[in-house]
Structure formats: C-alpha cells, structure tokens
Design a protein around this nucleic acid. Sequence first.
DNA 1: ATTTATGTTTACAG
DNA 2: CCTGTAAACATAAA
Length: 286
Amino acid sequence: MPELPEVETIAIDLQDCLVDRIIQQVKVFDKKIVPQGMNVFSKLIVGKKIKHIGRRAKMLFFNFYDDSYLVVHFKMTGQLVYSSGRRRFSGGHPIVNIGLELPNKFTRVIIFFKNDIRLFFNDVRRFGWMKILSADQFAALSARSGIEPLGSEFTFGNFLQILSHKKNSPVKQAIMDQKFLVGVGNIYADESLFAAKIKPFRQADQLSAEEARKLYCSIKRILTLAIKHRGTSFSDYVDAMGKRGNFLSLLKVYGRAGKTCKICGQIISKIKFRGRGTHWCADCQQ
DNA sequence: ATTTATGTTTACAG
DNA sequence: CCTGTAAACATAAA
C-alpha cells in the first residue's frame, strides 16, 4: 500500500514535526532492515540534523544539513509511527491492532530525538530497508529511478515514450515499471486504468492517442486526489490532530471484486495477472 | 534489449 | 491442518 500518495503523506507530516531536529540515538532490532550493518548505520545517523523530509518514487528521505540522506523504503508492509508523548500518527502500511503498544513485535528500528520524540519503523514482512547515503549516492539512486508522475518532467510526450518503450507489455505493467514511471503500484494502476476506461491487459503500444491522453491525465488526477485524501493506508488511524485519510472509500475497482461498478452496475472482475491481483470493470473498460 | 517468473517473508482468512 | 493471498522490487532466465 505504501505507493506514492501514502509516502507523500507521511513525508509531509514528518516534515512538520521533525525538521531541524537532531537524531540522538538509534536502536536496530532487525539487521535485515539495515543492510549497511548496525554499527555503520548507527555511526552515520546519530547526531545528524534534519534539513528536509521528502519523497522520491516510493522512497521517503530525510536530507540532513551535512547533505547526507536517510532513505527509507516501505516495500509492502513497512510503517513509520511518530510518537511524541501521547501524540502519535503513522504512515505507510496500516497495521491494525497495534494500537498504542510500542514498540511491538514488528518494530525493527527506533530513531530517538530529544523530548521523548521517537520514530518507530515497523514492518511485518521485513522487506523494507533504511540506508544512509551520501549526496552522490542519493543522486545516483534517483537517477536510476523513473519519472515522477506529478513532476514537470512527466509530459504527455514522455508518457508516449514510456508506452513505446514497453510496447510488448500490458499497459498495466507499463505504468507500474519503476524504471520508467515511479510511484504507481498495484492499487493506483488499477484505479488509473479504470478512470481512463482502459482494460489493464491492453498492449501498451496499442492505445489510441486519445486513450493514452486519458490515461496520462487519469494517473495524475488519481494520485493528486489520493494525496488530498491522505492515501489509502490510513483508514484505521486517527492522529492527534484528528486528521484521518481515507482514499479507501474512493477506490472504484481495487478490493471491490464481486461488488457492483459505481458507474454502470456491472460486477467488478478480478484475476491474478502477472502475479498480482488485477481489478477492472468489464463494461466500463475497453 | 525487453519480458516473465521467482525469491524475499510473515500474517491472516477460509 | 492446509492453501492461497497480500501493497514492492531485485534478480535470473528466456
């Protein structure tokens, strides 16, 4: 679930709380999450002062004043919980029943700040990771990633180029390929294709110009709307400020197999396609 | 080069 | 008990 809108949301929230704060201490409970090793990681992170928190692709990054970076990838089940006294909020994967008990069995890393402010990285399946990168390493990582769909680089011309690069793939695979376009995962791929009224299985280079244009606009519109609603992962969580993101209720096809299409009443279809659940309306999508 | 399946890992539903 | 499924991505093989 942590796709672009979810990572963007937690980046915005953390930026408000943690900018100009200094990391006092770090505890790593699971070495797998920190591939650089606990000692190196700890040495590189402790004492760093946060200049800016942002997102690149589906990765969250903390840019420190010395220009190094903490980069966090949530993968499938990663979650960050900010905790300051009684105030808590989370981002990334929603883990129900964790409630107020922290740390818990899924807590892999804790980052400590002054005034009892802590950041818990929880991850059920342990695919996520945290790394400290130099400015150069971060730039290289960014260069290896595709175009940001909400950035100025994402022009219609560039989108057509992506479709032609991926010409023998189904269009769903084309828009999910992180080497070309970042941030779109399984949920927002299905939702964008529904919004554009295009079947996920269509060959990428077989879309008409009009269809490509519709898909291009739909991707941007859906992601922007999801950010506005603070992503899909937050339905179970209300933070201390009462903010409660809930894009879940706006999903039109994802997770709605067997239910009726909100547009035409047809039953929403679902099959496993290229290893992942794919949802669509057989009437609305051509 | 692109495209596809597989491995990573754990919890949960049925 | 078992089987299938889940939000991501690197990697290998075709």
